[in-house]
Simulated assay, not measured.
Amino acid sequence: MMRHKRLEHRFVEHVPERLEPGILYVSMEYATSAHSCCCGCGEEVVVPFTPTDWKMTFDGETVSLSPSIGNWTLECRSHYVIDHGKVIEAGPWDDEQIEAERRRDRAAKARFYGQAPRHEPSVQAATPKPRPGFWRRLYDRVFTKP
């Protein structure tokens, strides 16, 4: 459960050394933002704005970041979206989903920056296939399995 349900934004030149919980610090000069993890663990979360990372939207009153913030390297492994200053908890990801996202991220950076990607399995092949729903599994078991 997210401890912080809203983040107040502050536009700053430099991110302060000590981050105040519940505040999203945005530095346009350095194209980055930082905040204390919304789960309440106190870890610093840095979000760079680049064509292949996150995008920041300011509507004159609130800030949104996209895509979601997945703190996979932190002990809390929190995952949330910041939408118009609201913190919306997103579902947890397993290790396979996290690794697939990391491969997609590396491939996107390689494409954008014109680098030859390291030999990795296809991004499409790395995406876990969704498990068939209950009714599909039941139908297969009853009607297609000997």
Rank of each mutant, 00 (worst) to 15 (best):
T144W: 13
I69F: 08
A34L: 10
E96R: 12
L74N: 03
S122W: 10
R77N: 09
Y80M: 00
H14T: 11
S36W: 06
Y139V: 10
K5A: 03
G114W: 09
I98V: 05
S78L: 02
H79C: 06
C41G: 06
P48Q: 04
G22V: 06
S36Q: 13
E75Q: 13
R77H: 10
P16L: 06
V63F: 12
K5N: 04
L74M: 06
E96Q: 12
S36E: 13
A116H: 13
E29A: 15
L74C: 01
R3I: 05
L138I: 00
P128A: 00
C76T: 04
L138Y: 05
G85H: 12
G22N: 13
F143D: 09
W54F: 01
M1C: 05
P92R: 15
Y80F: 01
R111S: 09
C41I: 01
D83W: 10
V47Q: 09
T73A: 12
R136F: 04
A31Y: 14
V142P: 05
S122Q: 10
F112R: 14
H4W: 14
C41N: 08
P117S: 06
F112V: 04
K55V: 04
Y139R: 15
C76A: 08
E101H: 14
K55W: 12
N71T: 01
E43D: 10
L19N: 11
C41S: 06
Y30Q: 15
K5L: 05
R102C: 02
K5V: 01
V63A: 06
L19G: 08
A100V: 06
G40C: 02
Y139Q: 14
R103H: 09
M1H: 09
H119S: 07
S66K: 13
I82G: 02
I69Q: 14
P132Y: 11
M56R: 08
T50V: 04
T73F: 14
A107C: 13
V81E: 10
W135S: 00
K55P: 02
F143Y: 14
A100N: 08
V47W: 10
R3T: 08
T32V: 15
A110W: 08
